[in-house]
Every structure is written in C-alpha cells, then in structure tokens.
Simulated scan of single mutants.
Amino acid sequence: MALSLAGCGDNGGSGESDGGFTVGLLLPSRAVPRWEHSDKPLIEKRVKELCPDCRLEYANAENDAGNQRQQMNSMITKGVEVLIVDAADTKALRSSIQDARDEGVPVVSYDRLAEGPISSFVSFDGAQVGRLQGEALLTAMGDKADDGQIVMLNGDPASPNAAWYRDGAMSVLENKVKIGKSYTTLGWRAENAHDNMSAAISALGPQRIDGVLAANDTIATGVISALKSARVTPLPPVTGQDADLNAVRRIVKGEQYMTVYKPFTTEADSAAAMAIALGRGNDVGSITTTTVDNATDDDIPAVLLTPIAVTVDNIEETLVRDGVYTIDEICTPKLRPACDEAGLTP
C-alpha cells in the first residue's frame, strides 16, 4: 500500500491534468468526533502532499441528507474535478452521484459504501469491526458469556455500515448469549443511545444486563451515561468503535471495556490518493486491493483496511505508538492513578 500511494504523487498524464485542481470533500456529521478531528485534516494534508497545487473544498452535512445533496450539487456547479464523499444517507445521495458522473466528476466513496456509479471505495472491513466487538464482549463477560443477557445498540440504519457491523457481531454472539433488547441509534447520537439504554434498563432490570454491544464510542457515551443514571453497579462491559479520546479515557477508568481503532491515516491516505489519481484522469488499479458491489454497480475498485481491537492492555502499543494520542493527552491529572495501574507512564 505504501508503494502504491507513493506512486500517486507523480504527475502522470499530460496537459492540464498535470496542474492543480479542486477536490471536494463532503463528510456526514459532527456528532462523531472523528470526522472533524481526524478525517478532514488528514485528507487535506495528504491531498496537498500529493498535489501541492490542488485545492480542497469542504462541507459537512450535519447529519442531513438533503443538506449534503445541496452541498454536492453546489460543488459540482463550482467545477470540482473529483469528490470524496462520506454519505450521510447512502441511498439518498444516489441521484447526486449520478449527476456527478453525468458531469464527468468521479466520486470516491469514503468509509460508507454509497449507492450510484461511484468510481472507488475505501473503508475498514465492517464485518471484522463487528466480530472484534463481539469477541471482546464475550471475553469481558467471562462465565456470564455462557448464559448471559446483553443489549445491542446498533448504528443508524441510514448507514450501510450499521448493518455491516451488526452482522459481524452477530456472527460471534448468535447462539452464545441472549439478546435482551436491540435498538437502532438514529444519527449515531449519544442522547438517542441514552434513551434506548434507559428503556432497556427499565424493561430488563438494572441487574439483568451482563454486557452492552455499543456500535461506536458516541453510542457508548450515551449507554454509560444511562447506566450511571440508573445507578447500575458494577457497570457491565461496554464496547465501542473509533478510539475517541474520551472513550480511551473511559477504558482507562474501567467504564468502557474496549473500542475499535481504525487507523484513519491509512484510510485518509487511500482516499486522497484515489482522488488525485482520478482527478488527473488516471486509473486507481495500483491503489486498490479488492472490489465491492453496491446496490447499483458491481466490481467497484476498493480498499478494505484492517481494524484493531483496543483494551486497556494495548493502548500504548496501538494508539500511543501510532501517534494518535500521547500518554499526557490520555492521562489527565484525575486519571493519573488509573494510568499508573495500567502501565501508561510518560
């Protein structure tokens, strides 16, 4: 992958394609911290490295599919040469992606597989994300994994990744534990997760929940808040995803059992390399490693990256080693004793 990405720095081609052009970047929301804090700056940085004369036009949909359609159409009208799009609603954006194709603007589908004639796709293996969560939850439950009861808080059904994660988790959990309650979390919002978890506690009883499969760290935030509000002690193991800083701190404190680290730099690098290649009129075959099918097209060139499970035992060798966070960022003064116990020392 490193060799392939490096190769995209060449000004392959001729004529105007060798100069700078505008790359449009559309991200889905601010509810999940990673979009603004990780993906946007990483993509912007890599685009400039690969094409110093290129420009980045950015918009955030604020979880509104209609807003994202308008943003996309506006970028096409302004003359962007290529788009990187993480769809707020992968079905709702289909017509706009077709409009982009009709205007000769290739679309790189980022993180979520959009419908319509996309030119390429990059994400993490969602089934493996779910499997890592399910396996970690069973491990954390210990003896209760044999006959225990869990609550599942899945992601927003507007995102195909939500079903991808759920199916991966169920491949591990099915016939192992009882699913006491299962919910979808609209907008991946913590407040919606809080409401769903509160409903589960009321329905099942505060001492009859042995684990919680939370699809990501924002959902885990709402779950843990609801458990604390209901004075559930000890807290059952709770999963997560995205390695948000607050989630990592919760893991150190023992409030959240695990998260899934998806090295965003690699995902952003792949998306930027695809966009620059497509903007220059080149093929992405040297960048992609597999193909995927969406609801409208088959054999779409793709990169599916490998996620990593993170617990308190491997924070240093994953997130700290990769430069995602420093120990000082993770270990606030209040967390210093817990960090010392976990072996997280500067």
Rank of each mutant, 00 (worst) to 15 (best):
R166E: 12
K253A: 09
T265C: 02
I308Y: 09
E115Q: 09
V23I: 13
G20Y: 13
M170L: 11
E81C: 05
A87K: 04
P206D: 11
K78M: 02
A163I: 09
S270H: 00
R166H: 13
L138R: 02
S123G: 03
Y165L: 12
E316K: 15
D53W: 04
E174D: 11
P333I: 07
V85M: 02
D217S: 14
L213S: 04
V320L: 14
N216T: 08
R250A: 11
E49P: 12
D86S: 08
I84W: 04
E317H: 15
G134L: 01
T288G: 01
T239V: 15
N154W: 07
Q256I: 08
E329V: 10
D195Q: 15
G148R: 07
A214T: 06
M152E: 08
R112D: 05
L344D: 03
I224G: 06
I276E: 00
A87C: 09
G15N: 14
S14P: 09
M1P: 14
L42R: 10
R34K: 11
E174H: 09
L3C: 12
Y325D: 02
L344E: 05
G323H: 15
G12H: 11
Q68G: 05
L132T: 02
P337C: 04
E103I: 08
R46Y: 13
D64L: 11
G222W: 04
G254P: 07
V82Q: 04
M141G: 03
P234E: 11
A190P: 05
T77S: 09
V23M: 07
T318C: 13
M197H: 05
T290L: 02
I327Y: 04
T318N: 14
E57Q: 13
D322W: 13
P160W: 02
D156I: 10
A268L: 01
D269R: 03
G13Q: 15
E115K: 03
E341P: 03
S229A: 14
V108C: 06
L50M: 13
G168Y: 01
A136I: 01
D156R: 09
A277S: 01
E62S: 12
K91S: 07
A342N: 02
G24V: 04
A199D: 09
P301Y: 09
Y110D: 04
Y110R: 05
L113P: 00
N282C: 00
V172Y: 04
D283I: 00
D283W: 00
